[in-house]
Design a protein around this nucleic acid. Sequence first.
DNA 1: TCGTATTAGTTGATTTTGTAACTAACAAGC
DNA 2: GCTTGTTAGTTACAAAATCAACTAATACGA
Lengths: 144, 144
Amino acid sequence: MSETSDFDLKNFLPYLLNLAAEVSSLEFQTYYKTHYGMLRMEWRVLFHLGQYGQMTAKQICDRARLHKTKVSRAVAALESKRYLKRSVSDHDRRHEDLALTPAGQRVFRDLTTAAAAFDDKLSQKLTPDENAMLRTCLGKIAKL
Amino acid sequence: MSETSDFDLKNFLPYLLNLAAEVSSLEFQTYYKTHYGMLRMEWRVLFHLGQYGQMTAKQICDRARLHKTKVSRAVAALESKRYLKRSVSDHDRRHEDLALTPAGQRVFRDLTTAAAAFDDKLSQKLTPDENAMLRTCLGKIAKL
DNA sequence: TCGTATTAGTTGATTTTGTAACTAACAAGC
DNA sequence: GCTTGTTAGTTACAAAATCAACTAATACGA
């Protein structure tokens, strides 16, 4: 029985964070997966378009800190679901302006509502103080 | 632009948790990947064996909350690296008792040391109060 | 002791992700 | 104009995660 050190996985921050992230994501993930057949990256991209309006893939990459291939695939998937439309920019044809379709906006509103409800449910496990501090701590760790 | 609700991704707990988990894991992950060619699941399994001594794959599944296919593949990988040995149990030949080899124990000690140092580094971004509360909160969320 | 259910663990097929190389459009210097 | 460099986005291939089906050993009731 190795008592090599007093280190304990159960207190290892990356481990705890991963565990909490997994558990907390599962229910909401299941929601958009079963209701709209969407993946996490698709939800994130849809969210950014819904929240901030028309933008290019590059802008989404920067804002969401996502790699361009992830965004590219998510955009293609959302397009094939008719949740967004693209239009090549006139003055720079490398850019594609992305915008949600009415259908995409409906999905956005529904997911936003659902997300808010999930967040409330999670928050209720913690005191108001804990809630505030938790978000602060996570921000520090994620270097936001 | 859509002011559908006051919901903001930047405060959505699952999102923040995933972000913090990703960022905080990256450096350590790089360490055991480059030094020992190990995957996250392998590190977790190795850790459990190092910390708790000999156990079966099933016990690891339960303790680490991992699916059996993940553990099965991690065990196979660790075995091929000669970091663990398996021995079929006598009184129930479905069970395999797993234990680290001396080489595996050396790796365990090294990774444990590295993890502890890395955890310290992360902890320094937070006050002692925040540290304690953060771990409490994460525990609540992960239903530990 | 036979049939059924359960448990431990593995394997294979399918999906998803990650990495790197690629195309196309533009910009800037010469 | 032509080269060189940079940027936006896609594609192709490899690594990995997921899910379901499978084998083998045991338990347990009729």
